[in-house]
């Protein structure tokens, strides 16, 4: 009994030390919010096209029944990181054959049209989410966010923030490859 009591401070120190060690891990992001959507069916939504754009609108039914998993990217012209991410996503579409759908989040149509005219339009379909309600359905915490959706409508992967920089691109590429979203397993 005495030994047990004498050992208590040591045990407490080990437990607290363990927590501190865990907290020191530089890869741990304390702001990361676990997504409830992973392995769940994608939410139901039906968005009109962006006025002034020839790209058709986006609904849940467009994500289902595709040959390969597809990518849904939530973007806005007012979102600065989206601009950087746009080039990365365009490369994935043009070089690797990724299929990309867009949700234009709380954006003025004219701004979105100008943005896409300036930078190019890699999106097959774009739904205009003016109210932000579809964003809530997707559990959105900010723009940009990118999802990989399986052929049966299951959400396989979620990336919060821009897919920019070697680490992010690598994580995203791995997820794409694992999901089988790229033809012939392309991607680097």
């Amino acid at each position: 009994m005495k030994r047990l009591i004498a050992g208590l401070p040591f045990i407490a120190a080990v437990i607290f030390g363990g927590f501190f060690l865990w907290g020191l891990n530089p890869d741990r992001d304390p702001n990361e919010i676990p997504s409830v959507l992973i392995s769940q069916p994608a939410p139901a939504f039906d968005l009109d096209p962006v006025p002034g754009l020839e790209t058709p609108g986006l609904a849940r039914s467009d994500l289902v029944g595709n040959e390969r998993p597809v990518v849904v990217n939530v973007f806005a012209s007012w979102c600065v990181p989206c601009r950087a991410e746009h080039a990365v996503l365009t490369r994935f579409v043009e070089r690797d054959g990724m299929r990309l759908f867009g949700i234009n989040y709380k954006d003025k149509p004219e701004d979105a049209v100008k943005w896409l005219n300036d930078l190019g339009n890699p999106y097959e379909r774009i739904g205009s989410d003016l109210s932000g309600r579809t964003g809530i359905e997707w559990g959105l915490s900010g723009v940009p966010e990118t999802f990989i959706v399986d052929g049966d409508g299951t959400v396989l992967f979620r990336y919060v923030g821009p897919v920019v920089g070697p680490d992010a691109v690598e994580r995203f590429t791995t997820a794409l490859t694992q999901a089988g979203a790229l033809p012939n397993g392309a991607g680097s």
Partner: peptide, 14 residues
């Protein structure tokens, strides 16, 4: 409760 559950279904316990 229904309101809270509605939002919890989309954003999780967080």
């Amino acid at each position: 409760t229904q309101v809270v559950e509605y939002i919890r279904a989309r954003y999780g316990d967080y």
